[in-house]
Simulated scan of single mutants.
Amino acid sequence: MATQHSRAAARLMISPAVILLFLWMAVPLGMTIYFSFLNYNLLIPSAHNFIGLQNYDFFVTDPAFVTALVNTLVLVLGVLVITTVGGVLMALLLDRPMWGQGIVRILVIAPFFVMPTVSALVWKNMFMNPVNGIFAWVFHLLGIQPFDFLAQAPLFSIIMIVSWEWLPFAALILLTALQSLDSEQIEAAEMDGASAFSRFIYITVPHLTRSITVVILIQTIFLLSIFAEIYVTTNGGPGNASTNIPFMIYSQSLLQFDVGGGSAGGIIAVILANIVAIFLMRMIGKNLEA
């Protein structure tokens, strides 16, 4: 009886937080769904009639949509490949004993705590500037014409910037997993004559599989909503060369003042993100069961 009363009291105490969290998510989502069915433009706020699924049809059939979708997928996959492979290599390096190991680890992790807007500005003005940037200076030393990264390879440039931001996160998670590896397995394999490459492929990589899966899941959720780096560096251009789905929604809503079309794009983005999340959750479930 006392247990039932304590459970009821616990539910009563936690219910305000649950209700607040539910409203925090449900109200904006509900308003977005509502506006997505309206012909609502901020330039004509008094006219907002119901038009059904026309906003969704307009957003999906927009010539920029396919480009934005492909750019989103390329951006996510590119960053995941770089951060996963680079994170494993960096974790292996940081796991080796060295002088000043603690300081080195702090310096490696530091980029993850830099705000996306700040890191994008640093890369844009300090590294990728075709006149005064560090890369331009290196090209001049090599006798090569400086390359304007943001104009000639905008999507690749954004992938590099975002990868620099997320590489420390992947390295930190994988380093933690690497330190839990039983050293006796490595020693036994070494005594049996296994090469360093064989030990890495058959012992280290299988041990890191679950951590790699978690890194991919967490990063994917955030990478699908990349916006600040694009806004600060290329503004979606040249043309639509670096426009992804979030930036297209921003352009539709705040540059064209089309609240209905932007809301429809937001719902489409939520659906796509949930499809990706479900796929990744199933992949993680299989890895955990294995």
Score class of each variant (00 low, 15 high):
8 A>R: 00
9 A>K: 00
13 M>Q: 05
13 M>P: 08
13 M>I: 11
14 I>T: 15
15 S>W: 13
18 V>S: 01
19 I>L: 15
20 L>M: 11
20 L>Y: 08
22 F>R: 03
27 V>R: 02
30 G>S: 08
30 G>P: 04
35 F>K: 09
38 L>C: 09
40 Y>W: 15
44 I>Q: 08
50 F>S: 08
52 G>T: 01
53 L>R: 00
54 Q>W: 04
57 D>I: 11
58 F>G: 12
59 F>D: 01
65 F>N: 02
72 T>D: 11
72 T>Y: 11
76 V>Q: 04
78 G>L: 15
79 V>L: 12
79 V>A: 12
82 I>L: 10
82 I>C: 05
85 V>T: 13
96 R>V: 07
104 V>K: 03
111 P>T: 02
116 P>C: 06
117 T>M: 15
124 K>F: 14
130 P>Q: 11
133 G>C: 09
134 I>H: 06
134 I>G: 06
135 F>A: 07
137 W>S: 15
146 P>S: 06
152 Q>V: 03
159 I>A: 04
161 I>E: 04
168 P>D: 03
168 P>Y: 04
176 T>L: 15
176 T>F: 14
177 A>Y: 00
179 Q>D: 12
179 Q>H: 14
183 S>L: 13
184 E>I: 10
184 E>H: 13
185 Q>P: 05
187 E>D: 12
188 A>V: 04
189 A>F: 12
190 E>L: 13
194 A>T: 02
210 R>V: 10
213 T>N: 11
215 V>C: 06
215 V>Q: 02
219 Q>F: 10
226 I>E: 04
229 E>Q: 13
231 Y>V: 03
231 Y>G: 01
233 T>Y: 01
234 T>C: 12
235 N>S: 14
236 G>P: 01
239 G>M: 04
239 G>V: 03
244 N>H: 05
251 S>Y: 11
252 Q>M: 14
255 L>R: 13
264 A>I: 00
265 G>C: 03
268 I>S: 02
270 V>H: 03
273 A>C: 09
278 I>V: 15
278 I>A: 14
279 F>T: 11
279 F>Q: 05
282 R>G: 14
284 I>E: 14
285 G>I: 03
286 K>R: 11
288 L>C: 11
289 E>Q: 10
290 A>C: 02
